[in-house]
Design a protein around this nucleic acid. Structure first.
Lengths: 164, 164
DNA sequence: CCTTTACCTCAAGTGAACTTGAGGTCGTAG
DNA sequence: CTACGACCTCAAGTTCACTTGAGGTAAAGG
């Protein structure tokens, strides 16, 4: 019925379509992230759905998901495909991460905004400025920064060393 | 009037307070991102405001600003300090970047949301599924992915290879 | 037949941001 | 006096995600 065969793609075509260099596709394949079959001439051929995989890879990367984690998802595919269920689970997980990231960034933006607004980076003018070492009070201990700006907020609030 | 001298910090204290390993502070200093003076014993001492610098570094990193760019800002400091004006400029710049990132992530989240909702990752069920190669129509050319999900969106819209 | 083009493999190199390790110096506590 | 912890330097190693390069094949066009 359908004369459109939607044939498989060469590595060059994939690269063009997916917007990544050929070398990257080689790399992804070596890392087990995408698959191909070979022609007589030993050239790679990609099922069109591999394009979708590349899209997922790049998308996930944009959210900060490392390749190892993406592979973990892909490795869950019994038949080499992601079942809707698996996808939903991963998507939910990544969406959560997304939410976290968005929240972090929004907090950061707010902080920057108020910093700009109040000129608080200038020791001379910031109403929050306070020469005492308030944070010293709560001692040492494990710290976290990236993905958790709580302490930044605290410093901003205490106004410690408000100048740079 | 103030008996609290708020004395300078050793590298260990800085590390504890800033939540980064000592080696990282060494590294930042080697990279010209922070400064210290030395005691007789050749030990580093940090002015408290260096703590603020570290906070800025980590914050900026969370937004994806590379160290080189942070240094570029810091290098703008004639007196070794950031003037409110310079800070405002950088903060505005980084805030723009933040906005971009937030927008990208929000877009991603929406896409993931609708994917989950419609089960579109399943070739069999997605209402968007379309076996034709719609995207093939617009040929090769430069591509971009990270920080620009336009093409992902397009693929999602066309539903190409909607299964994985 | 010859050349070009697109592909192949495998090893090594890249850059960012750190970390690890070896070997050495202070200054205080016991 | 000696041990200890905190600090020092400098070189080299690590991880991630690729990229580059050398050397080779296969099919199509002139």
């Amino acid at each position: 019925m359908s004369s459109k065969v939607a044939k498989d793609l060469s590595v060059g075509e994939m690269a063009a379509r997916a917007g990544v260099p050929v070398s990257t596709l080689h790399y992804y394949e070596a890392e087990g992230l995408i698959r191909s079959w070979r022609t007589n001439a030993n050239h790679r051929r990609y099922d069109r759905r591999e394009l979708r995989r590349v899209a997922i890879i790049r998308t996930a990367q944009a959210v900060g998901v490392p390749l190892s984690e993406i592979r973990a998802l892909f490795d869950n595919l019994p038949g080499g495909r992601i079942k809707a269920e698996d996808w939903a689970r991963a998507a939910t997980l990544w969406a959560d991460r997304l939410d976290d990231q968005i929240e972090t960034l929004l907090r950061l933006r707010d902080q920057m905004g108020s910093c700009i607004g109040c000129g608080c980076l200038s020791m001379d003018h910031c109403p929050l400025y306070n020469p005492d070492d308030r944070m010293g009070a709560h001692g040492a201990g494990p710290r976290r920064w990236v993905g958790d700006t709580a302490e930044v907020a605290e410093m901003d609030a205490s106004g410690e060393a408000a100048d740079v």
